[in-house]
């Protein structure tokens, strides 16, 4: 029974994909096809639970199966989205179908690349590097002085609880419409998480390790680079990963307050005004891709740098 069920589920999913992509628009409005979608969902759920079982079984297929489960889930969401939008002939103003978004994405690559350059390569990258760098340097200074630790940490925690994004209009006023103002917003947004996390990391040094360094007669530089910094790395990477998302959000939102006619935030607000929802979603896709890739790259780097940390070690 189980052997038959899996090929059957695959067939149903393929049939549903064909329905969603090839039937003329509006096929759900007066037909019997809606139950097929529900059956297809059940089929996908069955496939996913089979794949999960395979992934947990410890056979050589394990690794690809672990990746296949979330991929299948994502494809299923795209399928349902496509089917509902095409099936009920939802107007473009409300919601474009995913296939259309990808076509628009392919047709407008130069434009989207220019936006990406303006927002990501200029504003986000510059602001991110400066904000994280300043946060790190400030943390190094704070850790040295108990007075600053007592005073700055409550202030830093207070700053973390308030919506810093609100400074965007002020920065636009100070630094003009171009990318410098967006970078300034990103600097302020990324500074405090980096400061708080790095201070926590530098303070997390095991007293035994510090004593050991002392018995080795280690110099200040040696203590910092061989003991404190490696200990702080997991904390620093937490801040770096958190900041990679914050930076993109900061830059895009700052563009809502005034921008030259290029940039991802500008594209989104301009195309919403023109009701070109496919272009809006294409821009969001680019932003999502950029966000996920930078997060992923940082996570990979973290595994390399903090290979000794239990949370990384365990997975081997």
């Amino acid at each position: 029974m189980n052997r038959l069920l899996t090929p059957l589920a695959i067939c149903i999913l393929l049939a549903q994909t064909w329905i969603a992509l090839h039937l003329p628009k509006g096929f759900y409005q007066d037909s019997f096809l809606l139950p097929v979608l529900l059956i297809a969902l059940l089929a996908a759920a069955h496939l996913m639970s089979r794949l999960t079982a395979l992934a947990d079984s410890g056979r050589p297929w394990q690794r690809p199966c672990q990746l296949a489960v979330p991929t299948l889930f994502g494809l299923m969401i795209l399928l349902v989205w496509e089917a509902i939008v095409r099936g009920y002939d939802v107007p473009l103003v409300l919601m474009p179908e995913p296939s259309r978004v990808f076509v628009t994405l392919g047709n407008n690559l130069p434009l989207l690349w220019a936006d990406f350059q303006q927002t990501y390569l200029k504003a986000v990258l510059a602001g991110y590097l400066m904000g994280c760098g300043l946060g790190f340097v400030a943390a190094k200074l704070v850790v040295r002085s108990p007075f600053l630790q007592k005073g700055l940490l409550p202030l830093g925690n207070f700053m973390a609880s308030i919506p810093i994004i609100g400074i965007a209009p002020i920065m636009v006023m100070w630094f003009g419409f171009d990318w410098q103002s967006k970078a300034a917003v990103v600097v302020v947004m990324t500074f405090f998480p980096m400061l708080i996390n790095t201070v926590a990391g530098l303070r997390s040094v095991d007293p035994l390790h510090a004593d050991l360094m002392h018995t080795y007669a280690a110099g200040k530089g040696q203590i910092f680079f061989k003991n404190q910094l490696p200990q702080a790395m997991p904390f620093i990477f937490n801040a770096l990963k958190l900041n990679s998302t914050l930076a993109l959000i900061g830059a895009i939102v700052a563009e809502f307050f005034g921008t030259p006619i290029v940039g991802m935030g500008f594209r989104i607000s301009a195309e919403v005004g023109r009701m070109n929802m496919d272009m809006v979603w294409a821009t969001i896709f680019v932003a999502a891709l950029a966000g996920s890739l930078s997060y992923g790259a940082l996570a990979l780097l973290e595994r390399r740098v903090t290979f000794w940390h239990p949370s990384v070690r365990r997975e081997r």
Binding site: L94, M95, I165, S244, T245, L248, I249, I252, V253, F256, M264, G265, I268, S269, V272, M277, V280, W281, T283, I284, A287, A288, G291, S292, S294, Y295
Partner: peptide, 15 residues
């Protein structure tokens, strides 16, 4: 959460 969610804010509101 790696998606800049706030970018979707205008769309959600419009839609």
């Amino acid at each position: 959460q790696t998606v800049p969610i706030l970018a979707i804010a205008p769309i959600v509101v419009v839609v």
